[in-house]
Design a protein around this nucleic acid. Structure first.
Lengths: 141, 141
DNA sequence: GCGAGATTGTTTGCATACAAGCGGATGTTG
DNA sequence: CAACATCCGCTTGTATGCAAACAATCTCGC
């Protein structure tokens, strides 16, 4: 209970441990609702749906993935032909990533399932608690 | 803002996305405070400190890691001689994992740094907000 | 126009994470 | 006690996630 008690280091009271577990739980819920897309893959599709075309690095920043991670995500989405990429004519360092028609359609079809997953994740909380939690969580990112 | 608006799927409003980012931030803070132990490795040491000896699977359950993950964690701790493992004489399926003296000493030395990391993670919140956040988070695990 | 510094995309190496499946040990139950 | 289910530790395969280093490219000050 009291994290400052002499003998007491209680792992279950540690924010980090509970953040990790809450995230694990959410990923599992998400997987049940949206079988064939991981949360990170879905996040990339969401950003591309919103911004049309993005360089790979910028997409990574908008989805909180570093360049090594986003590369793998784009690679897998590309292998499934959900996104496409082409060189930027104005800046030869960049590769612009875009949704394909199939990618757009899949995102639109999955959007409501993602919202259902979000609802289930928050289901242990009352509506007011959930609002409060989201406000506090937003301050921690 | 409104996640139900017709065009609006706003990634930044999604609990899952923010849980993931909050967790990323915590891991980074933890790494600055405790350079040479990851949060999961530290969690394993904390549980072994609390329970003395545990089978590998039970340690995994207590630290929220599946058997494949906990195996790797124990392996790395073992390579650094922070833990030791031996067969259970009463149940030949089990391997009991225990802290070495070095492991105990390291955990004791790092405990306060872990608490400092926790404090920094919560530092964007007031004391009351932090309490509230921990209560709500505990309901989501 | 040119050179210092920054940015992009890439690779490698390491550390979680989970699913699925394996052989061996143990428990349970008819 | 024998069939059956369960549990343990392990392996493989896939997917994040970060650090560090790299070549190619761009920008900006001078």
């Amino acid at each position: 209970m009291n994290v400052k008690s002499p003998e007491g280091y209680h792992l279950s009271d540690q924010v980090g441990f509970n953040l990790r577990r809450a995230n694990q739980r959410h990923v599992a819920i998400f997987a049940r609702h949206i079988g064939d897309l991981t949360p990170t893959q879905f996040a990339a599709l969401a950003r591309l749906y919103e911004y049309k075309a993005l360089s790979q690095n910028r997409l990574g920043r908008l989805t909180a993935m570093d360049s090594a991670t986003i590369k793998g995500v784009v690679e897998r989405l590309r292998a499934r032909e959900l996104v496409d990429s082409r060189p930027d004519l104005n800046d030869q360092r960049l590769r612009l990533v875009e949704l394909t028609k199939a990618g757009q359609a899949l995102f639109e079809a999955m959007r409501e399932h993602a919202l259902a997953a979000r609802a289930e994740t928050l289901s242990p909380l009352t509506a007011q608690e959930a609002r409060q939690f989201e406000i506090l969580l937003a301050k921690l990112v």
